[in-house]
Design a protein around this nucleic acid. Structure first.
Lengths: 351, 351
DNA sequence: TGCCATACTTCCAACGATGTAGTAATCGAT
DNA sequence: ATCGATTACTACATCGTTGGAAGTATGGCA
């Protein structure tokens, strides 16, 4: 350690300072940093100078020159939805492996902020965007003029206008509902419909739900399909309250996500229903909460790590080859049967 | 809308293109964008050209010139810890109000990534950092040479080397423990100790716990103070398993965060303990999950919005006045008593 | 010894925006 | 009509970095 004080003034060291100290040209310093061919002795001296001065490259300048920033945006509606929090974690980690940093944008699911996202986030700041839309539909995205590479998450829009990663929501919802029907349940409710949206995840899950009922020979009773404005516990709790007040309450509920299910189970419990004996409950997303809840929650488990990996791969590919046709990736999912629709052994360990 | 096609080639429009189209100099375009004095007619023309070309400023270039980026980093250990997810949401929203964008860095609580954070995140990319440390202690932070403004979250280090926002963890833990003692509990356990750390949140909470026991005239039994490596549900579940296997299990547990508590409650339930009759449980953080859990979780509720606001204010102040002495902000907290330590009326609504 | 390939290194011009200095036009006051 | 002040704009240098062209040793080979 021959280090001297890192910097005399406020301004931090630039390549010029390093070059002066090492007695070489600026470009040579650049070459050392970028691993280009440099003589061993020179390299040594330059690295010493870098250490002495505490030099760190200025990203803005580098990006200006290179035309890219090394930053990718992840735009999700709400970070405190466990599903998005878990997904964000995986995406941040995966991006890190590829040398990218993730900038998280929280849209709140509103038009204005989502429009802002597909318009390229106000400035040339990110090299690409992974976007989980709520308000924007296929048309909005097809109309976009911005050229920032974009990957869509979650809403399965066939032959969409952009790269897209999703699970087969219809099939997943059908499996979940069929599971309930297979248990002998006959009045199966759904929580999480969003009738005001024409497309979107909720719509897919509702379609799968209806299809499964028909396949099982059960009537589709509209009063058992309960809308939920947001997908928070509160909304699930309210929907369940409504269901218990029906003349003939359901004996099973398929919730379009886990937080709805957790909220619903809370209300069901408060009103004296036993789960799963009186009402079986199935959720969607497989968040950590559901595993440890009492009772633990049966749920559709999407391959979140697979979503993160695929989204990043699509995005990085597009950054390199911007004109290739849009691709669709469907990630696998599976049904995890737990206590809320199965056995309730007291001593069963959470899975 | 007199807009023509946004861009012919791949390269997106720069100020030069806008200037050419509007028939003015580049600087005039810059002035229009930055709100400097420009004639009404000229402004009009320039704005039209901006719209026509779909021009958006290049952040890298602007930053290179201005020396700031408009980006703040938020470094937290894990995004899928609900506490951090909820906090991140608030911080993102608050920063947005101030015209800043938040770049989220997930440290995983490890040395390497945390060191990277206090070293300024590898390059001059962000204007400031809000950092919730796990591995780094006071000394590491005092030693840092990087000058990027830094605000620390969560770990109360008196007269620390940097701006700092926290709640009074000792007092909060004491209140929580006193609450349990006040219910007549005599064998009060704690989950979440981290003996290998000298400082940090866990340490503060343990101190408060011990203090409360002494004040209540209860013996401090070391076997009832259970460590937890991480603060996930799994760790809470394991710790609770250990506690139930003691000769004389506890009649109350204070968990150092809510996810530990939720995991612990799951195990307690599995092993036939009734909550709160057999074991009362108190958590820390007031995450949304705890409100809807069965039973709902008594917890220490820190003013998260206050933390977000204070952290941002401190950071923005420091960005402007880098040399002022470090400040400490203590945010208020309160105990939210719910079912896990109180009444368990079946029909009680979640709060 | 002379010539050339090889291996480093330097010089210069960008990247896109903004600050400073300077010029042209306009205005009011004399 | 003249001056100074003000306004509206332009030209140019600059931020820190990298790509490419050009330059300079070094060593090999005839």
């Amino acid at each position: 350690m021959t280090s001297t004080s890192p910097q005399p003034g406020r301004r931090s060291a630039s390549m010029k300072d390093v070059a002066a100290r090492a007695g070489v040209s600026v470009k040579t310093v650049s070459n050392v940093i970028n691993g280009a061919a440099v003589g061993a002795g020179t390299r040594e001296r330059v690295q010493q100078a870098i250490a002495d001065l505490g030099y760190r490259p200025n990203i803005s300048a580098r990006n200006l020159r290179r035309g890219r920033t090394g930053i990718l945006a992840l735009a999700v509606p709400e970070l405190d939805q466990p599903y998005f929090a878990e997904l964000a974690r995986l995406i941040v980690d995966t991006a890190d492996e590829h040398g990218y940093t993730i900038l998280i944008d929280q849209t709140g699911g509103g038009d204005r902020r989502e429009q802002y996202v597909i318009d390229g986030m106000g400035a040339k700041l990110v090299d690409g965007v992974i976007f989980s839309p709520v308000a924007m539909d296929r048309l909005d995205i097809a109309r976009r003029v911005d050229t920032t590479p974009l990957v869509l998450l979650g809403e399965r829009v066939s032959a969409g206008p952009a790269d897209h990663v999703a699970i087969d929501n219809v099939a997943a919802a059908r499996t979940a509902t069929a599971h309930l029907a297979g248990l002998g349940r006959r009045r199966i409710a759904a929580i999480g419909a969003q009738p005001d949206r024409v497309q979107g995840t909720s719509h897919m899950r509702e379609r799968g739900f209806r299809a499964a009922l028909e396949e099982a020979g059960l009537p589709v009773e509209e009063s058992l399909i309960v809308p939920a404005r947001e997908y928070h516990r509160r909304d699930g709790a309210e929907a369940a309250a409504y269901l218990t007040e029906l003349e003939e309450p359901p004996d099973a509920v398929f919730c379009f996500n886990d937080t709805l299910a957790l909220g619903a189970m809370r209300t069901l419990h408060d009103r004296g229903y036993r789960i799963p004996q009186d009402v079986a409950v199935v959720g969607f997303d497989d968040i950590d909460d559901g595993r440890y809840n009492v009772p633990s929650l049966t749920t559709v488990s999407p391959d979140k790590a697979g979503i993160a990996r695929s989204a990043l791969r699509l995005l990085l590919d597009r950054i390199e080859a911007i004109d290739s046709p849009p691709r669709e990736v469907t990630v696998r999912h599976e049904l995890r049967v737990r206590e809320s629709s199965g056995v309730t052994s007291r001593r069963s360990r959470a899975t």
